[in-house]
């Protein structure tokens, strides 16, 4: 195995990790829709009327994009969706920190587990790097489906 192949495998492993994070996150939110809606509400960014629709849709985007990314279907497109979601979540967290909101993060399936803060930001930035690598180098390595 040459250096390039090793790099491709490493990117694929991080892609699988990213996919699993989003699948678990999506499932957790789907099982706790009201809790997720409350988490969104706590950020005090969106009009209250829009919160439930977002709470209903976002977990399924996470689950579907995560599942497709896991099996290696439309790697670039699904990585783009996931990275965009991460970017939105990160902006929300930064905004919460800037407003001194000491709240539950409500992200990535961590209800009652993580609050908004620098650690969460570092975690999100790391995942965004993984997402970016999958967008930039969407190699068909460790995939269930070959296109």
């Amino acid at each position: 195995m040459n250096k390039k192949q090793i790099i491709n495998y490493l990117i694929a492993i991080t892609r699988i990790y990213l996919a699993l994070v989003f699948i678990l996150s999506g499932l957790d939110k789907i099982n706790n829709l009201e809790a997720f809606a409350v988490s969104i509400e706590n950020y005090k960014i969106l009009p209250i009327e829009t919160i439930n629709i977002i709470a209903i849709v976002i977990p399924w985007i996470e689950l579907v994009a995560g599942a497709l990314l896991l099996i290696g279907l439309y790697i670039k497109e699904n990585s783009l969706i996931i990275t965009t979601l991460l970017l939105i979540f990160t902006v929300a967290i930064i905004s919460a920190i800037a407003r001194n909101l000491d709240i539950d993060c409500g992200c990535q399936g961590t209800f009652d587990g993580q609050k908004v803060g620098i650690l969460k930001l570092i975690e999100n930035f790391s995942l965004m790097i993984v997402g970016y690598l999958s967008i930039k180098f969407p190699k068909q390595v460790l995939t269930y489906i070959k296109r």
Partner: peptide
């Protein structure tokens, strides 16, 4: 494809 994924997810969610 992105649009299709987003629309399918929205549909599944509803």
């Amino acid at each position: 494809v992105i649009l299709a994924i987003l629309m399918s997810s929205t549909f599944l969610g509803f």
